[in-house]
């Protein structure tokens, strides 16, 4: 699971959960790989992000050292910033771990890089 995905996921599927956002992350195995940088994509995705959540998640995984705490002004033309966001969004991946509902503490396991957001019959 990439941090871009984490930025978009909620645990609202659980009955009674209000927002279910942001999900906590418990990572047991993190992989960093190289993904081609595409400034157009990153520029378009930044306005969709909850940046605070992205920063928090990157920090939790120990990959926030280079990342500014807030979106810089005129980010469209700041390639350095776009590269850094690209890195945390697409190159840092949780292979094994848990996502945690902020309201109920319910854990959603991530294995082989794939989050399992299914809830059981009795939780719907």
């Amino acid at each position: 699971m990439k941090l871009l995905t984490h930025n978009m996921l909620s645990s609202k599927c659980i009955k009674g959960v209000n927002l279910g956002y942001p999900l906590g992350i418990e990572a047991r195995d993190i992989k960093v790989s190289k993904v081609d940088f595409n400034s157009e994509f990153v520029t378009r995705i930044i306005p969709k992000l909850d940046y605070k959540t992205l920063y928090g998640a990157a920090e939790k995984l120990g990959h926030a050292t280079d990342l500014p705490q807030t979106v810089v002004e005129n980010f469209e033309s700041n390639e350095d910033f776009l590269q850094k966001v690209h890195h945390v969004l697409l190159e840092v991946e949780v292979i094994d771990g848990d996502l945690i509902c902020p309201e109920t503490g319910r854990k959603f396991p991530i294995n082989a890089g794939i989050p399992n957001m299914l809830i059981n019959e009795d939780e719907v």
């Binding site: 699971m1 995905t5 599927c13």
Partner: peptide, 14 residues
């Protein structure tokens, strides 16, 4: 980006 095990009849996204 990713694939996720989830039930599309339930809310998942922000």
């Amino acid at each position: 980006i990713d694939i996720i095990v989830a039930d599309s009849s339930l809310p998942l996204w922000r």
